[in-house]
Design a protein around this nucleic acid. Structure first.
Lengths: 141, 141
DNA sequence: CTTAACTGTAACTGATATTATTACAGTACC
DNA sequence: GGTACTGTAATAATATCAGTTACAGTTAAG
């Protein structure tokens, strides 16, 4: 799993938690515990996918452009980490004359595609708003 | 995803494909396209979990100790890669005084635990035997 | 009882991927 | 114009992953 996914979700939840729905890359970075450049890179992608609006210049930052209850983790996943399940490493060799060795790569691939879809449907069931609820529940416990 | 999972599955399928159900680490390594040491490490783990028997010494190697149709990818996954979904990288800081920053790590964790279980149930539906069938189907196509 | 063919591990090296940092151009507000 | 931002590229530091070498232990064959 890509850690950018985590940063994206964390950022969106943080924005949802802010009364005005806004934060700068530096504020987010501090909260997430990483550096602002990484946050900007991720947020830039979220902007391109319509999850946030950005305002450059002084007093600028990022702002949610959708309702927290409308955005699912699957949306975020699709936007920046889909297909990440299969390792870069690939087994077998297509030129092999063995049934197993020559086709395993493809079969594995189809298995991981299925796994990825499974993940996606799971993420479909969790919204940014729900993440926020879980946080407050966690804090009370 | 850990690539050892792939090696393990590939190896088990290869064993299932062999008429005598046996192969040495070198034969497997050639088929998988990796080196024998890695294979042995993975197989050693499979042995500890009861998937294969090993015979050391001359003429030795690995042998399936269960029916291909009985072993699911979930069994393999649990044996050597369960919990691998969550990235090592962790978001937030428990000592933060922000609701979001201080609890996100835990909430993320629970999300990834759920995702991992989802994956497991998916893998539960695929056996080593089925992988073999898929291979032959793939070869005919 | 010696040799050859294996497994089981540990230690090391090299390659690759990930994260952090630095730098700077572009933009908006005051 | 100065300040406070985003956007992005380039680089450096670090961690992870895969391949290699080495060698002790085990079994079978001769």
């Amino acid at each position: 799993m890509n850690s950018e996914f985590i940063i994206a979700v964390h950022s969106l939840v943080l924005l949802a938690h802010r009364p005005d729905g806004m934060a700068s890359s530096e504020e987010i970075a501090t909260n997430v515990c990483t550096n602002p450049v990484r946050v900007r890179k991720v947020m830039s992608c979220l902007r391109k996918n319509g999850f946030v609006d950005t305002r450059e210049g002084s007093g600028g930052g990022y702002k949610l452009s959708q309702e927290p209850g409308e955005v699912t983790l699957a949306d975020v996943y699709r936007a920046l980490t889909a297909g990440s399940l299969a390792p870069s490493w690939c087994s077998g060799d297509p030129t092999s004359d063995c049934l197993v060795g020559s086709n395993m790569g493809d079969v594995m691939n189809s298995v991981f595609c299925g796994a990825d879809q499974q993940l996606e449907t799971y993420f479909e069931s969790i919204t940014i708003g729900q993440m926020l609820s879980r946080l407050t529940a966690m804090a009370k416990a």
